[in-house]
Design a protein around this nucleic acid. Sequence first.
DNA 1: CCTCGTAGGAGTACGGCGTACTCTTACGGA
DNA 2: TCCGTAAGAGTACGCCGTACTCCTACGAGG
Lengths: 204, 204
Amino acid sequence: MPRPRSLSHAQLASAALSVIDRDGLAGLSMRSVAKELGMSTMALYRYVDDREELERLVVDLVLGTVDTEPPGPEAPWQQRIEVLMGRLRDAVAAHPEIVPLTVAHRHRSLAGLRWSESVLGVLTEAGFDGDRRVIALRGLLGYLIGAIQLEHLGPLSGDGTLAIAELPSDAFTLMAETARHARKVSADREFTGGLALLLRGLGA
Amino acid sequence: MPRPRSLSHAQLASAALSVIDRDGLAGLSMRSVAKELGMSTMALYRYVDDREELERLVVDLVLGTVDTEPPGPEAPWQQRIEVLMGRLRDAVAAHPEIVPLTVAHRHRSLAGLRWSESVLGVLTEAGFDGDRRVIALRGLLGYLIGAIQLEHLGPLSGDGTLAIAELPSDAFTLMAETARHARKVSADREFTGGLALLLRGLGA
DNA sequence: CCTCGTAGGAGTACGGCGTACTCTTACGGA
DNA sequence: TCCGTAAGAGTACGCCGTACTCCTACGAGG
């Protein structure tokens, strides 16, 4: 057969990721990625059906870096899950701009599914099955997605905390007070603290 | 002063919401909203700085419908919070297409802040303060945002469950099994089940 | 070694988007 | 009645994703 492909999906994805890291998610376009690769815009369509598939490749690239091997089985299951959750959070935190992409394409990413499978493995070994296991996984996933977005797209912590602290404070007494206090709580402690609540609930 | 405004922000927002309900979020544009109102595209900019502000108005309109009055103080605080969470979930569920908008503009919506203030009120009456209260609010908010997105934008429940059930099942044994089982768990039970975990953790 | 089919890649073009800018028009106070 | 002001229309620009056409470089079969 003629003309072997000169580009792998991984190269394409990492070019897109470079664009995102440099110019933000808003800077991502078929044109900008093509320029990054030194080829014409339309040539990208030899490798990808549409922009959505390109985005999925980026998500796969990032989620592919997380180690899905469940941590040592001698540890308590709560801690094993905490490690898995933390690894995914860290991988996304390395490229915060892709947060909206991970949310949109999570369920179509093989790497993401591998991670879920791993979490399910730990849950199963801990004795979860049936409805309880479904609810546990969904609860963890929901918290993970929501917490990551709170962390990277908005207050309480981060810039937004300041905005809230400037509200008409007679109508939002508690919000103002909490926002002020939140500035002293690190994103790490917020994440693991919330997760600990969930895990404690799972254990009861 | 001349030419009183012929449109209120609420009218503008509800026109935009009509477009979204009819044509989906992808159908929302300055042009489509202007057409809905029978006016020129650029006239919208007399009422709104840019598209982002229009989106924020839509979020405010929807979140404005939730009753933020905390339920009766005689009830246990877990139940009071569950009611508040449920009300917000229901309001969003009435217009599922706006989910991405609520996530993006949540922290700039007055109605959203009112809701948070109300949750903080319940938490405070339940004895939470300082770091614990920050973490409780963030945990609840994170779960709420994540769970709503899971519910409306992807698997496990919904169409995606089927997609997962068709995976190479030797590599994703647990995912396939869980997805199959998840079809028998209603979205309602998933949401309240996960929330119950969080609330149980808060109570310990 | 040559040739030919195939797939890679370039170029052009279209419709849609957000929005900056200019011009016209309808109103309310003096 | 007239005038200042803001409402609204219209036009245009530079992006976007992508459909389509054309040219070109390659590798296998003779």
